[in-house]
Write a protein that binds this DNA or RNA. Structure first.
Ligand SMILES: [Zn+2]
Ligand SMILES: [Zn+2]
Ligand SMILES: [Zn+2]
Ligand SMILES: [Zn+2]
Lengths: 121, 121
DNA sequence: TGGTCGAATGAGAATCATTCTAATCACAGG
DNA sequence: CCTGTGATTAGAATGATTCTCATTCGACCA
């Protein structure tokens, strides 16, 4: 348990497989199933954020902010910044209400190339 | 090929598997690989929209609007509405620029329960 | 100290969407 | 007809995630 939590000290989003591999390479005899179990658990409690990449793989991250926020992710290196937009939240609520939808949630992520990666080419 | 296009006349997002199954049940001897190939092709040309669901499955839809837009999807029945938010687009650009990110894109979808589904319970 | 019970774990099998592969098929040109 | 090109197919291969189940680890108690 402390294992998965410890690993969550990574700066950017990691897949369950990456986390598992990293734990193994550190000598931890942890099973893949356990990694998935605990990630799912922490995701439920809101302890970590999850994000489904375009290729369908789910990645996880322990964020600094505990309140609702979104992410600006570098498409190349994965560097991740937490961002928030009150205006967006209001817009989402308004649009949903306008169409009579209730129990609204939304999913929003920004992707781009960070300054460092752009410098490289 | 007209096959996949024909099927795209569905109202809401469908997975490749669903589309394949539906074509087969209509007697079309279409292969799964062909469905994927053509969906990918149409997605590239912008002819259809794609969206990765929370469970990792990719779903496709032929939208009415050809310009950039987002979706308000019923979590229960899948009914989908196209929505747009100029403010959100501006916000995304601004946030990215503020952090020096370039080549920015974003992914935004709204989920909720539509009036019909709420009426049921 | 030993024994018991239940929750957590890990190895590997099972599942499921997606992609790859090799064999066919359709068909235009010669 | 015969052949080459490109699309199509069934089925195998891949890869992530989930399931199964025997085992381990503690907590608790006699
Ligand atoms: Zn976060
Ligand atoms: Zn970067
Ligand atoms: Zn659309
Ligand atoms: Zn609905």
């Amino acid at each position: 348990m402390a294992v998965a939590e410890l690993l969550a000290e990574q700066a950017d989003f990691r897949s369950a497989q990456q986390i598992h591999a990293e734990l193994r390479s550190r000598g931890e005899a942890v099973g893949l199933a356990t990694v998935y179990r605990n990630l799912a658990l922490m995701a439920e409690t809101g302890e970590i954020d999850t994000l489904v990449r375009a290729d369908g793989e789910t990645v996880y991250r322990r964020c600094g902010a505990t309140s609702h926020h979104h992410h600006l992710v570098c498409r190349r290196c994965g560097r991740t910044l937490e961002v928030s937009g009150p205006g967006v939240e209001r817009w989402a609520q308004a649009v949903a209400k306008e169409h009579g939808f209730t129990d609204v949630s939304h999913q929003l992520e920004l992707f781009g190339v960070c300054p460092e990666c752009r410098a490289e080419g």
